[in-house]
Amino acid sequence: MISEELMPALQGIVPAWIVTTSDDNVPNCTCISQVYPVDENHVALSNQFFSKTFRNLQSNPHAVVQVIHPADIGMWLLEIEHVRTESDGPLFDEMDMQLAAIASMSNMEDVFKLQSAYVFKVHSVTQLSEALHPAATL
């Protein structure tokens, strides 16, 4: 599902957007620094602060992220579903390490701590142009 072609969009080069909904169906859209590739069918987000996004995911695990390909600024939509939360292990370590590397440049390594890695199953990957004009792809 996550192709080689999409990989550059999952490197944190251009920030991504995520849309979640609250338990009373109010949508929330926020900017996130990186959507991490996990495997062919999973991505992960870093939870550093207790934000509305992560509160929303407790009641509705479904979300949509928009990632941007750095080469052509092409936008991709991923329908994702929160399936588990990791606070140790290789994925957590890798994400935590990246965060520490950047944060330590501002001596903020104690502030910017990864609380947990939210792992999502990817249900669909669509280019935004296809999503907007589905007929054009037929």
């Binding site: 490197q11 944190g12 080069i13 520490a100």
Partner: peptide
């Protein structure tokens, strides 16, 4: 420095964006 501390390889893209974000 983080790679030295954690003894793991790191591939970091979009350094400029990330640094701006922290700033």
């Amino acid at each position: 420095g983080t790679v030295a501390q954690r003894r793991k390889i790191m591939r970091m893209m979009g350094l400029r964006t990330r640094r701006r974000y922290v700033q």
